[in-house]
Write a protein that binds this DNA or RNA. Structure first.
Length: 471
RNA sequence: GGCGGCUUGGCCAAGUGGUAAGGCAGCGGCCUGCAAAGCCGUUAUUCUCCAGUUCAAAUCUGGAAGCCGCCUCCA
């Protein structure tokens, strides 16, 4: 049962064989910190969080690096617009990013390097490229990478320079040897942040930081490099060019790219004004629901964010927690010494290119199996196994990790707040209804049930009395 | 123009050439004073269409239609 990963470079799934036995190096392109993160960022981060967790589960020694791009034209633009220092902006959004990702139960990477803290490494990298004649300086302070010096340019995105020229969607720049040469270092204009370099005061281009920093932390080649699908070209293509041109060997073994999040079947875009921010979604749904949603479809496919899907996820999550609660009340105990057959299905799914959508089917199969055991009053070992497997699946997916009571309390609290309902009011109505029931006045009892139902409160009559939940 | 992807029941969604997972919704049943939860049964002779390869195809090949993404900052 070995792990298979879809490698963008090869266009197919391949068996995962680490560069160094027992170890895995992962580098993920993190955000450019100039604005609030949207649900698309959340997907990328959650997807690779699953990858991280799965490698650890498989017993690898993992070194997980995810950068922050904190020097960039967009940051400078924002700085000019709002009159704040770049560093104030980047720090603000890094902090926000951390808060939101923590809420989504995302594990922090081992290292989160910032471009501005690795300018020395970047300059050194560029100097070496120039020395090898893979890059050139032009009058005025720009340094470009020369794609003509790297014959394999285009191998990740399946492009070739001739075809791209035919597309002609690129501005001709007289300073460049080829229109596809890209910036490694650009000069600072008046008032822009800068660092001293052999090419004057300036700042690094976007692509170079990932080559320089990944080399610093993970060496070359390393195992996994990932990010959103849109980064395949030009960002990752350019990283390959820089790193492989300089060192003459493979840069990355497996390239992974996640699909986009659409909003109501449309691409998120500024013109449509439908950028959906993580914080907005967190206001509407529990963080766990968002995470569950993001994992409900295979990571490479597009996923559509919409109200109906989210509601469905809420119902599904309730089902899982309802079972966990029921199992725990029946005395289910965690015992990881043994696994059931559904666990094997889960592992197979995850080993097949991190197929979380399929893995989630094992979650529901476990719930059903567990409920059947409970219905048949056949507790004991079987229940413990199903329960333990389910808990373990939750740990690896990073969902349903709460105690059921905590989950339902939070949910109830939110609903009561949203509808300004006083819990005391509910208790009073229940007491009244139970009095009616004791007197066999079922008409009155049903009336109260309906009244509560109208408030989105659902009653459950059990052997230990009446409990309620929100709908 | 170049490159890549998608099209599976009312909806969402897996699917590794061997005879359609899972979830939501619906319907029937058991349980319940009634409910809720749960369980059981039921809902695609069929996977956009056409042709081909094969004993066997949703899965492979060729073609058609529709949709989407990247090539410009973008997760």
């Amino acid at each position: 049962m070995s792990l298979r990963i879809y490698n963008t470079l090869k266009g197919q799934k391949e068996e995962f064989v680490p560069v160094n036995k027992g170890k895995v190096g992962i580098y993920i392109c993190g955000p450019t910190v100039y604005d609030t993160s949207h649900i698309g960022h959340a997907r990328s981060v959650v997807v690779f969080d699953i990858v991280f967790r799965w490698f650890k589960y498989l017993g690898y020694e993992v070194l997980y690096v995810r950068n922050f791009t904190d020097v960039d034209d967009k940051i400078i633009k924002k700085s000019n617009e709002i009159g704040e220092e770049c560093s104030v902006i980047t720090e603000k959004y890094i902090k926000e990013f951390h808060i939101e990702m923590d809420a989504l139960n995302v594990l922090r990477p081992d290292v989160e390097p910032k471009a501005t803290e690795h300018i020395d490494h970047i300059i050194k990298f560029i100097k070496k490229l120039i020395a090898k004649e893979k890059a050139y300086y032009v009058e005025g302070g720009d340094v470009y990478f020369s794609i003509e010096t790297f014959k394999e340019y285009g191998k990740l995105s399946n492009r070739n320079v001739e075809d791209m020229k035919a597309g002609a969607r690129i501005a001709i720049d007289k300073n460049k040897k080829s229109p596809f040469d890209f910036t490694l270092w650009k000069p600072a204009k008046e008032g822009e942040p800068y660092w001293e370099s052999p090419w004057g005061k300036g700042r690094p281009g976007w692509h170079i930081e990932c080559s320089a920093m990944s080399y610093e932390y993970l060496g070359m080649p390393f195992d996994i490099h990932g990010g959103g699908k849109d980064l395949i070209f030009p960002h990752h293509e350019n990283e390959i060019a820089q790193s492989e041109a300089l060192y003459g060997r493979q840069f990355v073994k497996y390239w992974m790219h996640n699909g986009f999040v659409d909003i109501d079947n449309e691409k998120m875009s500024k013109s449509l004004g439908n950028f959906t921010m993580i914080k907005e979604v967190l206001e509407r749904y529990p963080a766990e629901v968002i995470r569950f949603f993001l994992l409900s479809k295979h990571y490479r496919s597009p996923i559509d964010y919409n109200e109906d899907s989210m509601k469905e996820i809420v119902v599904s999550l309730d089902r899982v927690y309802t079972f966990l609660e029921r199992a725990e009340k029946a005395g289910a105990k965690r015992d990881d010494s043994k696994h059931g057959t559904l666990w094997n299905d889960f592992v197979l799914a995850m080993n097949d290119d991190f197929n979380s959508a399929r893995a989630i089917a094992s979650v529901f199969d476990s719930v059903k199996k567990g409920n059947t055991i409970l219905d048949q009053n056949d507790q004991g070992k079987n229940l413990d196994i199903v329960y333990s497997d389910l808990r373990k699946m939750g740990e690896l997916l990073g969902i349903f990790l709460l105690e059921p009571a905590e989950y339902f309390d939070q949910k109830n609290k939110k609903l009561l707040e949203n509808h300004s309902i006083n819990p005391q009011e509910i208790d009073n109505l229940i007491a009244e209804r139970n009095k009616a029931r004791a007197n066999k006045n079922f008409a009155k009892a049903d009336e109260i049930r309906a009244q509560l139902k109208a408030m989105n409160i659902v009653l459950k009559d059990g052997p230990d009395g009446t409990t309620w939940k929100t709908e």
